[in-house]
């Protein structure tokens, strides 16, 4: 579903990603872990077609980036730590706006479905600026799944959420991930949550994937031990 080969990203003289290789199969939920500045957000922005690769090949759902970016974007759902929503519009108006941009048939029915999925059906007429951070993030997920994407990208979705909101987001993410053969990539600093959700853990350090493991391969180690060992080896 996602194939990345020898990806390099430079901003001026600074190289952020250094020949990164990465694949995700349909049905996989990959947690991309790494310290601040490792290049996680840059990598996700390239996958989301918001940033151009300097070198390398990026293929998503069979389409090349950046040449076939519009076709890729139709198959992508993105949730970042910002909700990408308009505070002065209601929840339903925000979703209707995105439904227009994605040219969805029967948008009203789909909007109702996704609002139910994230538990905001009874708040659809409320302005988004009156929502708590957790509710905004749930609505952001509704926006991201509105067009039934094949690939989901989550960039630090738990940022700024309290314990209750994070637990609710866990449930929503599980619901989303199990609806269809999605490939999911999530960056997070919350190792406990990543361990609970992901089917594979990749560690990104200094612009490269330095370690990868499935929950079965972790064995008696927990994710924190694996993560620390991976970073020590890479140092």
């Amino acid at each position: 579903m996602i194939e990345v080969t020898k990806l390099v990203k430079r901003f001026g003289a600074k190289t952020i990603l250094r020949g990164l290789n990465f694949t995700v199969q349909p049905g996989e939920f990959v947690a991309l872990l790494g310290p601040n500045g490792a290049g996680k957000t840059t990598f996700l922005r390239i996958l989301a077609s918001l940033s151009r690769p300097s070198l390398g090949v990026v293929r998503i759902a069979g389409y090349n980036l950046p040449a076939q970016a519009a076709a890729v974007r139709r198959r992508l759902g993105v949730v970042s730590h910002q909700p990408l929503l308009y505070g002065d519009l209601t929840a339903a108006e925000n979703l209707a706006f995105y439904a227009d941009l994605y040219d969805l048939p029967q948008p009203a029915r789909r909007i109702e479905e996704v609002l139910r999925l994230v538990g905001l059906a009874n708040r659809h007429r409320d302005l988004v600026r009156t929502f708590s951070r957790g509710m905004q993030q749930r609505l952001a997920i509704a926006r991201a799944v509105l067009h039934n994407p094949e690939v989901m990208l989550f960039d630090e979705p738990y940022t700024g959420l309290d314990q209750d909101a994070s637990e609710m987001l866990d449930t929503v993410l599980k619901n989303v991930a199990t609806q269809g053969p999605h490939a999911v990539v999530m960056t997070s600093h919350d190792l406990a949550r990543a361990e609970n959700l992901a089917t594979r853990f990749d560690v990104l350090s200094r612009g490269q994937i330095v370690a990868s493991a499935t929950p079965a391969q972790l064995g008696s180690n927990n994710l924190l031990t694996f993560y620390k060992q991976a970073l020590e080896k890479a140092a």
Binding site: S49, L50, S80, Q82, P83, L84, Y102
Partner: peptide, 12 residues
């Protein structure tokens, strides 16, 4: 609000 990214993610 990051909405510019939201617009740029649209397949158009």
């Amino acid at each position: 609000q990051g909405c510019l990214d939201g617009l740029l993610l649209a397949p158009l």
